[in-house]
Amino acid sequence: MKVTVKHWHAVATWRWDTGTDQQTIDEEGDVCGICRVPYEGCCPSCKMPGDDCPLIWGECSHVFHMHCLLKWIGTAASKQQCPMDRRTWVTAERKVAPTR
C-alpha cells in the first residue's frame, strides 16, 4: 500500500528562538524579565504579539521584549544597564528581529 498525502492542514504554535535548550521546549515559556509576560505574549503597551512586539537580545544573554527594554533604557535610572545583571546593555545585533 502506498499512502499519498494530498493536503495536510496542520496546527503549530510559534515561539521565539531564544537560544534556550531544545530540551526545555516543553516547559512553560520564559517570561520577559521586565514585564513578566511570556516572550510569546506581548508587552503591556502592545496588542499584537509576534513581529509587532519583537524581542531584543543582549550581549549579556538576557532577552526582553524590545519595547520593555527600550522604555527601561530610556529612563535616567537605568544608566544604560541591563536590568538583570547591571552590565551596560549591548544589543546583540545578530538576533534582532528584522524590522519590516
Binding site: 494530498k6 493536503h7 492542514h9 521565539w16 528562538d17 524581542l55 538576533k95 528581529a97
Partner: peptide
C-alpha cells in the same frame, strides 16, 4: 528568530 512547535493531534489530513 522563530521556531515552530507542532500540535500534531490537531488538523486534518487528506489522504489517498
Amino acid at each position: 528568530d522563530k521556531k515552530l512547535r507542532w500540535l500534531p493531534h490537531l488538523g486534518t489530513v487528506h489522504l489517498e
